[in-house]
Amino acid sequence: MKTPLVAIRKVSKSFGEFQALRQVSLDIWPGEVVCLIGQSGSGKTTLLRCVNQLTSIDSGGIWLDGELLGLRERGGRLHRLNEVEIARQRLKCGMVFQRFNLFPHMTALENVIEGPVQVQKRKASEAKLEAMELLRRVGLAEKANSYPSQLSGGQQQRVAIARALAMKPELVLFDEPTSALDPELVGEVLAVMKELATSGMTMLVVTHELGFAREVADRVVYMDQGAIVEAGPAKDLLTAPREARTRAFLAAEV
C-alpha cells in the first residue's frame, strides 16, 4: 500500500476569532500536481503554509513522508517540536512565494546557493555548479550575477523556483506564484512550473490560473470558508463540477 507524501488529517486553525481551517483532510501523492483554488479567505494559503509550518496548526495532524510535522506524540499528549527540529522538517518542502521574496542583497546565483551552502553545509563550488544548472533550467543562466532589483518580476520568480529546487525538496509549495506578476510575464513562470511538473516533482499550488490547473494539475481542490468543498481530477472538476458552490466560483472566475 503506497503512502501519501503529505497526509493532512482534520487540521484546524484560527486566527483569533476567524476560523481559517475547519478540520481539513487531504492526501497528496508523490508526483502529483494538486492545485488549491478558492476565494481569498477560503483557507487555501493557510493550508499551504501549514505544510511547511510557516503557520502552526491548532489541532489535527500533518504527516510529511510519514513523519508528523511540528509535534511529537508522547503518552497520549502532543508536544511541540523545537525550532531546530522544525527547521529540519522544512527541508523537505520548497516554497515559492507570491512576492518572490528573493534576498535583495545577493545575486541570483547567491540566492540559489544560500540554502545548500548555509543550511545543508555543502561546498560552495559544488553548490554553484548545481545552481548554474538550475538557473539554466529556468532559463536564466545569463542572469546569474544580476541582483533581484535588476530582474523583472517573472525573472525573479523563476530564480525563486530555482532557489527552492536547490534544496532538493520532495515537494514544492507554490503560493499564488503568478498573482503579483504583470500579465505578459505570467507565461514564462507557468512554463517553468509546467516543466517541473513534467519532470515528476510533487507540487501543491495555490493559484487563480485555471488554465494552468486544467493543463498541468492532476487534481484540483476547491476550498471555501476553511473547508474543502470539492476535490477531484482537474479536467473533471473544472469542466463539470459537482457542487453548486464550485460551479458558482468557477463561473465568477472566468
Binding site: N52, L54, E83, V84, A87, R88, R90, L91, C93, G94, M95, F97, R99, N101, L102, F103, P104, H105, E114, G115, Q118, V119, Q120, A160, R163, A164, M167
Partner: peptide, 25 residues
Amino acid sequence: IGQYEAAQAIGMGRLQALRRIVLPQ
C-alpha cells in the same frame, strides 16, 4: 516579513535567518 519566511522556507533557524538575511538588509 517575507524575507524571514523565505529564509525559514530554505531551512534556516531564527538566528541564522537574522544573521544572513534580515540583519544585512
